[in-house]
Deep mutational scan, measured.
Amino acid sequence: MSYSVTLTGPGPWGFRLQGGKDFNMPLTISRITPGSKAAQSQLSQGDLVVAIDGVNTDTMTHLEAQNKIKSASYNLSLTLQKS
């Protein structure tokens, strides 16, 4: 079951990613910084990142996902799936 979260910026957003197409692993939330915008939302460590700002992550490399997140200036919309 997927869910959506919109973090209001600017960054830093307070989470780290792992995985990506180049690692043959789905993009997942690997760490959440305590007290951060991510920590105050529904994000959980281990959640799968399905889309970033409406763009499906199935074919994204780790770097492409990082760049997509960094390019979000004020709002960052994520679609996630609980692990």
Rank of each mutant, 00 (worst) to 15 (best):
R16M: 13
T57L: 02
M25D: 07
A65K: 02
S71Y: 11
T61K: 06
L63G: 11
I32C: 04
S2Y: 14
G54I: 00
Q81D: 08
D47S: 05
S77K: 15
V49H: 01
S30R: 11
S30C: 08
K68Q: 11
N75P: 10
F15C: 04
F15Y: 02
P12W: 03
S2I: 15
A72T: 15
L76C: 07
S2G: 09
T33I: 09
R16F: 14
L76R: 02
T59D: 14
L78V: 05
A38E: 03
S30Q: 08
E64G: 06
F23R: 14
Q42T: 15
T6A: 07
T6G: 05
P34S: 08
K70G: 11
D22W: 03
L7H: 00
E64K: 04
A39K: 04
H62R: 15
M25A: 11
M1N: 15
S36R: 03
G35P: 02
S73C: 10
P26N: 03
G11L: 05
T8I: 10
T8V: 15
G19N: 03
L48T: 14
S4W: 06
G9T: 05
M1R: 05
S2E: 06
G11M: 07
L63P: 07
E64L: 03
L17D: 00
K37F: 06
G19H: 03
S30H: 14
P10C: 11
T79L: 12
Q40C: 11
I52S: 01
G35W: 06
L43G: 02
G20I: 01
L48N: 11
V50I: 13
A51Y: 07
Q66H: 09
R31N: 13
L76Y: 02
Q66M: 14
P34L: 07
S73H: 15
T33D: 11
M60N: 01
G54W: 03
S77M: 15
Y3P: 03
S73R: 14
G20R: 03
K21G: 05
S4P: 05
N56E: 13
Q45H: 07
G11H: 07
I32H: 00
N56R: 10
L80E: 00
Q40N: 15
D47K: 00
S71G: 13
E64Y: 06
L63D: 12
L43K: 01
K21A: 08
K37T: 14
A51W: 03
I32V: 07
T79F: 07
Q81K: 13
N67K: 14
K68H: 09
N56K: 12
V5G: 00
P26E: 04
D58G: 09
T61E: 05
P34G: 06
G11A: 10
L76H: 03
I32Y: 01
W13V: 05
L80P: 00
L43N: 00
V55D: 10
G46W: 05
M25Q: 13
T61A: 04
T57E: 00
Q42H: 09
P26V: 02
L76W: 01
Q66W: 11
S41V: 07
K21S: 11
M25Y: 07
T33V: 12
D58N: 10
L7M: 10
Y3Q: 05
E64T: 07
D58I: 08
S30F: 07
Y3C: 08
D58S: 12
G19R: 03
V50W: 05
S77A: 13
P34F: 08
G14Q: 01
P10K: 12
L78Q: 00
V5M: 03
N24V: 05
L63Q: 13
T28W: 07
A39H: 10
K37M: 08
L76F: 04
F15N: 01
P10D: 12
Y3T: 06
S44H: 15
G35Q: 08
S36Y: 03
T61S: 13
A39S: 13
G35K: 11
Q40P: 03
R16Y: 13
S4I: 14
Q66E: 12
A39R: 04
S44L: 08
S44W: 05
S71R: 14
K37G: 06
N24T: 08
R16P: 00
L63T: 13
S2D: 11
Q45Y: 07
S77I: 12
A51M: 12
T59E: 10
T61F: 04
L76I: 08
L78A: 01
L63K: 14
V50R: 08
V5P: 01
D53P: 00
P10E: 13
P12A: 06
H62K: 15
P10L: 07
N67E: 14
L17G: 00
S71Q: 15
D47I: 02
K82W: 05
L27R: 01
A39M: 06
G14I: 00
L27D: 00
I29Q: 01
V55G: 05
A65W: 03
W13S: 03
S2R: 09
G11Q: 08
D53Q: 08
T33P: 03
P12L: 04
Y74Q: 15
G54P: 01
T57A: 13
P10A: 11
V49E: 00
G54F: 03
S83G: 08
I69N: 00
S83I: 11
S77F: 11
K82F: 06
S71A: 15
G46T: 04
R31E: 15
T59V: 12
K82S: 15
Y74S: 15
S73E: 15
I32N: 01
K70V: 11
G54L: 03
P26S: 04
K68M: 14
N75L: 11
T59W: 08
D53F: 05
I69D: 01
N67P: 00
K21E: 07
Y74K: 15
S71E: 14
F15T: 00
S4Q: 12
V55H: 11
Y3A: 04
A72K: 14
G19A: 02
L43Q: 00
S41I: 05
S71F: 09
N75A: 12
K21Q: 08
W13N: 03
P34R: 10
Y74C: 13
L43R: 00
V55R: 09
P12T: 05
T61W: 03
W13K: 04
D22R: 04
P34M: 07
A39I: 04
V55C: 14
A38C: 05
T57D: 00
G14V: 01
L78R: 00
T57K: 00
G19W: 02
A65H: 00
Y3R: 05
T57S: 08
S77C: 13
Q40K: 12
G19C: 02
I69V: 13
S73N: 11
P10Y: 10
M60K: 02
R16C: 15
Q40Y: 08
N67M: 08
N56G: 14
T57W: 02
K70F: 07
F15A: 02
T61Q: 04
Y3W: 05
S41T: 13
T8N: 06
P12Q: 06
T33E: 13
T33K: 08
S30T: 11
N56Q: 11
G54E: 07
V5F: 03
L80M: 14
M25P: 02
I29F: 03
L17E: 01
G9M: 04
Q45L: 13
Q81A: 13
E64N: 06
L7S: 01
H62E: 08
Q18A: 11
L76V: 09
S2H: 14
S83D: 08
R16L: 10
L48G: 06
V55N: 11
L17H: 01
Y74R: 15
Q40G: 11
V5S: 03
G14R: 00
G20M: 01
G20W: 01
K21T: 12
T28F: 07
G9Q: 05
M1C: 12
A65P: 00
A51T: 13
T59C: 11
N56T: 15
Y74E: 15
K82H: 08
L63S: 13
T33F: 09
W13Y: 15
F23A: 11
L76D: 01
N67F: 09
S77T: 14
G35L: 06
R31G: 12
N24L: 09
S44I: 07
M60G: 01
I69E: 01
T79V: 11
T6E: 07
N75G: 15
R31M: 12
T28Q: 14
L7F: 11
V5Y: 03
L63V: 12
T6Q: 08
F15E: 00
T28K: 15
L48R: 11
F15M: 07
A65G: 04
L76T: 04
L43P: 00
K68S: 10
D22S: 05
K37I: 11
V49L: 11
W13H: 10
F15D: 02
L48H: 07
R31L: 10
T59G: 12
Q18K: 13
Y74H: 14
N56S: 12
I52G: 01
S41M: 10
P34Q: 10
L78N: 01
F15L: 11
N67S: 09
I29R: 00
Q81T: 14
R16N: 12
K82T: 14
Q81H: 07
V50P: 02
G11C: 06
T6S: 09
S36F: 03
